[in-house]
């Protein structure tokens, strides 16, 4: 089983990201589960939220939160001061942060495998709004190899309709290609 924990703020699309990962896993013939944790009074914009995705080759039964993730995604670097975003990351696990900064400049534990992508900038360019989740998904696919870009595109097409499909696919592909070309 592979476990992903996403740290974001209410309104940034963390829960949708977790859902899209679950759909992408299903599209590629695996089992999946995605769920949010909304603490401190619920669904408030700007409040720290966590969302989780599990992926496995067999049906998933466990429903506790994810304490030892294989992968962590940090959508917003202002969370690093507030939340222990790297808590419990498995040895060999990876932390992917949405930032223009260098991984070593984030003040995260040095022994972790930290990767960065400026997903907000890609989102502004491709979508016209700083909704960075699909760009982060493209980068995640390139960094981890857990998904091919086609299943990410298929998940976006299944979840959304209209013009935002193409814009979000463009954001995911741009992030994927930027990472691949490094």
């Amino acid at each position: 089983m592979k476990e992903i924990r996403i740290h974001g703020r209410g309104g940034q699309g963390s829960v949708v990201t977790a859902e899209l990962f679950a759909i992408a896993a299903h599209q590629s013939g695996r089992y999946s589960q995605a769920f949010p944790y909304l603490g401190g009074g619920g669904e408030r914009r700007g409040a720290p939220v966590q969302a989780f995705t599990r992926i496995d080759d067999k049906p998933i039964r466990i429903r506790s939160k994810i304490y030892e993730p294989d992968y962590v995604i940090v959508s917003d670097t202002t969370l690093i001061k507030l939340v222990d975003v790297t808590a419990g990351v498995k040895p060999g696990g990876m932390v992917i942060v949405n930032t223009e900064k260098d991984p070593m400049a984030l003040g995260l534990p040095k022994e972790l495998d930290i990767r960065t992508i400026n997903a907000t900038q890609i989102a502004v360019e491709k979508i016209g709004r700083p909704i960075m989740n699909t760009a982060l998904m493209g980068a995640f696919a390139a960094f981890t190899g857990e998904f091919d870009i086609e299943s990410i595109k298929a998940a976006i097409s299944q979840k959304f309709s209209g013009a935002i499909v193409d814009k979000n696919v463009a954001a995911a592909v741009a992030a994927y290609e930027q990472v691949k070309s490094r």
């Binding site: 679950a22 759909i23 089992y31 769920f35 949010p36 944790y37 909304l38 998933i60 429903r63």
Partner: peptide, 9 residues
């Protein structure tokens, strides 16, 4: 939440 807000097949 645990069930109502989980996504699964």
């Amino acid at each position: 939440w645990i069930l109502t807000h989980s996504f699964e097949p």
